[in-house]
Design a protein around this nucleic acid. Structure first.
Length: 306
DNA sequence: GCCTCGCCTAGTTTATTTCT
DNA sequence: AGAAATAAACTAGGCGAGGC
């Protein structure tokens, strides 16, 4: 086994990230994806301890994305995605389309199916105004009634092995992207020709074979208390911006085979879209920090935070 | 103003290191 | 040996500039 980190070592790594909080999800992807447990508190996953560090910081949720000056402002959010992709190089190299996040998102889009998580109307939505802007694209956007789901898609396995992205990393990414897109809500509505009454909702979609799905199950079972509280805190933060709370979904199944049909990436087996989709419901958060201030329910703090 | 093609970045994949 | 963190390499696709 590799040497494990102590709380203090994790805390030092966390402090380094605070020099540039705008892109926390990006700069912190290293430690946010740690999958081990603390050296000096082996009952606790690194990610749950990091969630506590985030919660202990009063202003970090405000700081994220506050000073990004090249968030998309003049370019349209609608860049005319048509579900097609030139996969000739992939086909040439591997003989088939290997399972991967991007073609998977495209196949979900091309299916036109009404999923439990809505009907997908775009994918790879760029938030950047110019090439050198450092933040990326929103994986999937779907619509269900008047809600726009800002979806981060996390797969579990590729052909070459496990992808070890944690739920913490997914939460940080989705929080950031939803917050950023909401700043440009008017442009987005205009570009996508949506009704003005729509509301955003941060969503994480994964497969049951993914690490983040394991974390969703743990949350549902009352574990990962700090992450649960962090989600709760983000939901409260978002409610002030008229953004709906997080939702969590997992497609129950194995990686589907992807094929190309006239450049459109589709599922080889169309019935994949009828796979069971599990929604995870989080237990109520226990620690409360009203109005961005400090915790009040001091009686149970010791139980919640190690 | 549109098209082409090379550039740049994020995300993904592979290789290397570093421990027990 | 085996697992996890870290670094390096690769790929896809949006972006940007130059040609028409």
């Amino acid at each position: 086994m590799r040497k494990r980190y102590t709380k203090n070592e994790i805390k030092e790594k966390w402090k380094e990230l605070l020099n540039d909080p705008d892109l926390l999800y990006h700069n912190g992807s290293g430690i946010f994806n740690y999958k081990g447990v603390l050296e000096d508190a082996p009952a606790m996953l690194y990610i749950d301890y990091i969630a506590k560090l985030i919660l202990d910081d009063n202003i970090i949720l405000d700081s994220i994305g506050e000073n990004l000056n090249d968030l998309r402002y003049s370019r349209s959010f609608n860049i005319g995605h048509d579900g097609k992709s030139d996969s000739s190089s992939r086909l040439m190299k591997y003989g088939r389309i290997r399972f991967n996040e991007k073609p998977f998102a495209m196949a979900l889009y091309n299916s036109g199916h009404n999923f439990l998580f809505g009907k997908i109307f775009d994918y790879e939505l760029p938030l950047k105004e110019r090439l050198t802007s450092r933040y990326g694209e929103i994986d999937i956007l779907s619509k269900i009634d008047n809600e726009i789901y800002v979806i981060e898609l996390k797969i579990g396995y590729t052909d070459s092995g496990k992808i070890s992205e944690t739920l913490l990393r997914a939460i940080m990414e989705t929080f950031t992207f939803t917050k950023l897109l909401n700043i440009r809500k008017d442009n987005f509505i205009k570009d996508m020709k949506l009704p003005e009454t729509i509301t955003f909702r941060p969503v994480i979609l994964t497969m049951t074979n993914a690490l983040s799905a394991d974390h969703m199950k743990m949350l549902e079972n009352g574990e990962l208390k700090n992450i649960n509280n962090l989600i709760d805190e983000m939901n409260k933060y978002f409610s002030k911006l008229n953004i709906l709370p997080f939702k969590f979904f997992a497609i129950d199944g194995h990686n589907p085979e992807l094929i190309q049909d006239n450049k459109r990436i589709i599922f080889k087996d169309p019935s994949f879209v009828h796979s069971k989709v599990i929604e995870f419901f989080l237990p109520p958060a226990v620690a409360i920090r009203p109005e961005g201030k400090y915790f009040q329910q001091s009686i149970i703090i010791s139980e919640v935070f190690l």
